[in-house]
């Protein structure tokens, strides 16, 4: 169905965003000798093998001990290293929240917390591993930058960009094969939203895997004569409030779309901005206060209401409230 739509962005290849991380880390390591990697027994899953092979003296296998990994990374910044930690998003956040809070965020350490297998698109492993609360936990921490890129190319660019950024960063990406629809050589600017498609009736603010769904939703809405603006919010914190307010000043209503709990996600941050400045009608696409479950990524996206169709429905609802 997607293929028959006239989407403004298209793809010829699919790849997992975690591979964008692995390839970006290798590039960052080649550019900057201070970059070091740490992994908690998930080198293959995180695609950190190429970095490990090329820079064995700058790579540290930590074993299944994520709390220690966060402390080690914080300590390695003392001496000028730029540590990238790698494990699943669940074990990168909830499991080690206090370690991140005290040793990394409060201590202002230049650690890059790189988290794969976020959200329901992890698939068959089920809810124990499908964290949907990680963005909320990380964005609450003072000093923390939170980034959720949308495809392989953007994840690779983001990984290279955070190596050059001073301060703690949470970088969230995923497991499934996903359309590559953004430029190979894009410039990734932390904190700068990207207006991908210009529109006038409703704005779709999307992050991570759901940016592609937003692109599809725009084409579906266009077929019904509705002009949607699509904005890629790859950086959830700091939030590009200027871009958000500029867009809704024009469209007058919006939808947020994310593979995360509605509580504590991107939508919350946008809603705060709107309420303070320009309270236009807003609807939310995300997981509504429930855990995930086992299934294929696509079946789960459908069951939990994260598809383009869901964005279309919420966009119409927002429009009707104008």
């Amino acid at each position: 169905m997607e293929k028959t739509l006239n989407t403004k962005f298209t793809y010829t290849e699919k790849k997992d965003t975690r591979s964008g991380f692995g390839d970006g880390l290798l590039e960052a390591g080649r550019k900057n000798p201070e970059v070091v990697g740490l992994c908690a027994d998930l080198i293959g899953s995180l695609k950190m093998g190429a970095f490990q092979k090329e820079f064995p003296e700058r790579f540290f296998q930590v074993g299944i001990a994520e709390a220690n990994m966060m402390g080690l990374a914080a300590g390695m910044t003392i001496g000028g290293k730029i540590p990238f930690t790698g494990t699943f998003a669940n074990f990168s956040t909830g499991r080690v929240y206090d370690q991140i809070r005290q040793s990394i965020a409060y201590s202002g350490k230049n650690v890059k917390i790189c988290a794969s297998h976020a959200g329901v698109t992890l698939g068959e492993d089920g809810a124990t591993h499908q964290i949907l609360e990680d963005v909320g936990m990380m964005k609450m921490l003072p000093h923390m930058t939170v980034i959720n890129p949308c495809d392989y190319n953007q994840t690779k660019a983001a990984t290279m960009a955070i190596a050059e950024h001073e301060g703690p960063v949470y970088l969230r990406f995923g497991r499934p094969s996903w359309p590559i629809f953004t430029d190979k050589d894009q410039k990734f600017e932390i904190g700068k939203a990207w207006k991908m498609i210009e529109g006038k009736d409703v704005t779709i603010f999307a992050t991570g895997h759901l940016v592609w769904e937003a692109v599809v939703a725009e084409a579906m809405l266009a077929e019904e004569g509705i002009s949607a603006e699509v904005i890629n919010i790859h950086t959830i914190k700091p939030l590009d409030e200027e871009a958000i307010l500029e867009s809704v000043a024009k469209t007058g209503c919006c939808v947020s779309a994310e593979e995360h709990q509605l509580n504590g996600g991107l939508g919350d941050s946008i809603a705060q901005t709107l309420v303070r400045n320009n309270p236009v009608p807003m609807e939310f696409v995300g997981v509504d206060d429930s855990f995930g479950e086992s299934g294929t990524p696509m079946d789960l996206m459908k069951k939990y209401g994260l598809k383009a169709e869901n964005i279309v429905e919420k966009a119409k609802k927002a429009l009707a409230r104008k």
Binding site: N68, G71, G75, G79
Partner: peptide, 20 residues
Amino acid sequence: RIASGSLGQGMSAAIGAAQA
């Protein structure tokens, strides 16, 4: 060089600094 108070975290940081 690092905040402490919540217990159990300091040795990890010290090991990281030693490896650096």
